[in-house]
């Protein structure tokens, strides 16, 4: 006697479960991630407990431990910084300037950037910090 194997369910039902998992993963990574341009050098911001949440938007000026600069992920010499910032500020006068300095960067390489941004007309200049001690 030969028993007929019952017909399998259509495979679309199992695919729907896979879609759900992938969709949840997609939303998860979209929520917890931040799509910032990363600097071409290592930047570990200083740690602080009283930092405020940083909204998205603005431009990021990264400062390496040795004083190298990167504007929105692209290395830039100090001489070319003012024209680049001025051009960006002309497009958006309320642009936020985020200075993401490495925690061991000397202040002689960081504080002049604050003054430079202020002199160019940036009304919102912030220093990037992290609450994570091992960040």
């Amino acid at each position: 006697m030969k028993l007929n194997r019952p017909a399998r369910n259509p495979h679309s039902e199992t695919i729907i479960a896979l879609i759900d998992v992938v969709f949840f993963l997609l939303v998860f990574f979209m929520l917890i991630g931040r799509m910032d341009a990363t600097a071409p050098f290592d930047v570990r911001p200083a740690t602080a407990d009283t930092g405020r949440d940083m909204p998205s938007g603005g431009i990021t000026l990264a400062v390496s431990a040795t004083g190298d600069l990167a504007l929105d992920g692209k290395a830039i010499p100090r001489d070319a910084l003012s024209p680049a910032l001025s051009a960006l500020l002309a497009d958006d006068p309320d642009l936020r300037l985020r200075i993401n300095a490495h925690r061991t960067a000397e202040l002689r390489n960081v504080l002049p950037l604050v003054a430079q941004g202020e002199a160019l007309g940036f009304r919102d200049v912030v220093l990037v910090v992290t609450p994570e001690t091992d960040g």
Binding site: G33, V126, L127, G135
Partner: peptide
């Protein structure tokens, strides 16, 4: 997953 950064960043106003 590849393009996002996951470091928790805050800010302190400088100006």
């Amino acid at each position: 997953m590849v393009t996002s950064t996951y470091l928790n960043l805050d800010m302190i106003p400088a100006v």
